[in-house]
Design a protein around this nucleic acid. Sequence first.
DNA 1: TAAGATTATATGCTATTACATATTTGTCTT
DNA 2: AAGACAAATATGTAATAGCATATAATCTTA
Lengths: 112, 112
Amino acid sequence: MPLHITGERLRGLPFQMRQDLIAGRKRLGWTQVELGQKVGLPQPHISGIESGKVVPRFNTLLDLVRVLEYDLLLVPRTLVPAALALIHHHSQAADGERPMYAVDPSENSDES
Amino acid sequence: MPLHITGERLRGLPFQMRQDLIAGRKRLGWTQVELGQKVGLPQPHISGIESGKVVPRFNTLLDLVRVLEYDLLLVPRTLVPAALALIHHHSQAADGERPMYAVDPSENSDES
DNA sequence: TAAGATTATATGCTATTACATATTTGTCTT
DNA sequence: AAGACAAATATGTAATAGCATATAATCTTA
């Protein structure tokens, strides 16, 4: 199925991040219900987050990231390419390390 | 019960991240008003975010991170130390790249 | 096909961030 | 001390994620 990014104004998390969350969950062999239980969220919420229908709060996102064995790094943009190279070089567990700036510009912007 | 440290229900962003946001803003020589204008937020909001009184929504945080020339990376936890080493090695502008997992329980930030 | 498991959608209701505005406090400079 | 700039605090309203529940759609497997 074509995922035309434009037009479909999903104000969900960046596409790549959602893919990483889904990949992380499946890598651990968890269902949305199981993941939800570990972070205290109902399955519909996990579904909404993964599908980009809702944006979780930061703390909720942090919980998800942590149980999925990820972490969020705040990195100076000039160093992002180097960090990415390092990560990709070691890429062992699929790809879960894209920067937010790499996401398609059409899916997020200032809401002013 | 001896409180102070734990139990401090600061639902703000992780201490380190707030410090990085502040450091980034000051590195660019911006006031809270100026930063707010660039992301479309009033000064009191910037204040609340920086002081840990409120947690911005993800998109708001992303806007702040971007204008401050940072980026958020979702990294497999096993690779975080390597990424940190790389970043610290290049440490150009102080420290603006701690991982969220690094904030220990004593992240309590009520310095008063 | 049928049954079960998994995921997606729908609806109220609650909680809290976002927002606007005003006020206050603090710091620095003159 | 006074003034200007910066940052923090306070209040009220609006928008939205969180939540619980129910139900549908999809996928898997016997």
